[in-house]
């Protein structure tokens, strides 16, 4: 092995982790830590990231890292931040990185508590829209009409009927200084948002769309392509909010949602019959609403 390969192996999120092939989450974490540098401690609640990055004796984390439980990532992070502050080590910042199951669902109360207290933590949700660690069950972040193992397509149901929880808006409503969404498809943008978030103190939120080849059902080399299509369709709006106001959006040349949906097994049923076409039309309405709400279209000026 030569010196340069060694350098790669010395990255803050080192290789040897056990993420699936083409994991959008693993790639996100690599870039999150490139943006933060090593003056951070990371807290990760239970989930894919925790499992694939913490087999006993084989840790990819070259920053202090803690996993405790599923539903307490935010409160453990608050505790770490309070301790470092009490010890006069406020220069070491705390970043929590959790999946959508822990963030949107089981740890939601703790997340809300952390944002209400405005503890000095950057909370990053690496969102793959279901409980992948346990085989792809429906979460509050699962998008409408996606098929999951606990809300599967059947004769009576087309997958999830409800909306994806609008967590960025909920977090922003706590008065958070900085709330943003990013996609692993746009890593410079992702890194920029992490850096921007670190300029603030108090509780901040970043939600990263991290396509999952294994459960969304697409080839492992398409992770970023799927991510780009999601953003371009308007279903995954990328924006920044400061103190509750949208300050920046990533402009798109909108594509129709079918171009994003078609390549994923979890939406395959939408292209099976005419009923599916109606549902695609509804998803198109949701995308159009996002495009209008955030002013995403580069053709329309907007914000």
């Amino acid at each position: 092995m030569n010196a340069s390969a060694q350098e790669n192996r010395m990255e803050l999120f080192a290789p040897g982790h056990r993420a699936c092939h083409g994991c959008g989450m693993a790639l996100s974490v690599r870039h999150i830590l490139k943006a933060t540098g090593n003056q951070v401690a990371v807290v990760t609640p239970t989930g894919c990231l925790e499992t694939f990055s913490s087999p006993y004796g084989y840790s990819p984390w070259r920053v202090p890292w803690i996993h405790h439980l599923f539903e307490n990532g935010p409160s453990v992070a608050s505790g770490v931040a309070a301790a470092l502050d009490a010890q006069g080590r406020g220069d070491v910042r705390v970043v929590a990185i959790g999946g959508d199951g822990s963030t949107f669902d089981i740890g939601f109360a703790a997340l809300s508590g952390m944002f209400e207290r405005d503890d000095d933590v950057l909370y990053i949700c690496v969102d793959n829209g279901a409980y992948m660690n346990t085989g792809g069950q429906r979460s509050g972040a699962t998008p409408t009409y996606a098929s999951t193992t606990t809300d599967p397509v059947g004769k009576l149901r087309p997958g999830k009927l409800q909306h994806k929880k609008d967590l960025p808006a909920i977090v922003a409503a706590h008065g958070a200084a900085y709330v943003a969404t990013a996609s692993v498809a746009y890593r410079k943008d992702l890194q920029k948002k992490v850096k921007r978030a670190m300029e603030f103190h108090g509780a901040r939120y970043l939600q990263i769309d991290t396509p999952c080849p294994s459960v969304w059902g697409f080839p492992s080399d398409h992770t970023l392509e799927v991510g780009r299509l999601g953003v371009a369709s308007g279903l995954v709006p990328l924006f920044e909010m400061e103190y509750g106001n949208v300050t920046k959006v990533r402009k798109i040349k909108p594509i129709t949602v079918d171009k994003y949906l078609r390549g994923q097994k979890r939406f395959r049923h939408l292209f099976a019959d005419e009923q599916g076409a109606e549902l695609v039309a509804k998803l198109q309405q949701m995308a159009d609403a996002n495009i209008a709400k955030y002013g995403l279209s580069s053709q329309s000026g907007g914000q």
Binding site: A41, V43, I66, H68, L69, N72, P74, S75, V76, A77, S78, G79, V80, A81, A82, A83, L84, A86, Q87, A109, A110, G113
Partner: peptide, 12 residues
């Protein structure tokens, strides 16, 4: 969360 904060603080 009361106990979880302690877990984090103690770990730190």
């Amino acid at each position: 969360s009361a106990a979880s904060v302690l877990a984090g603080a103690s770990c730190a």
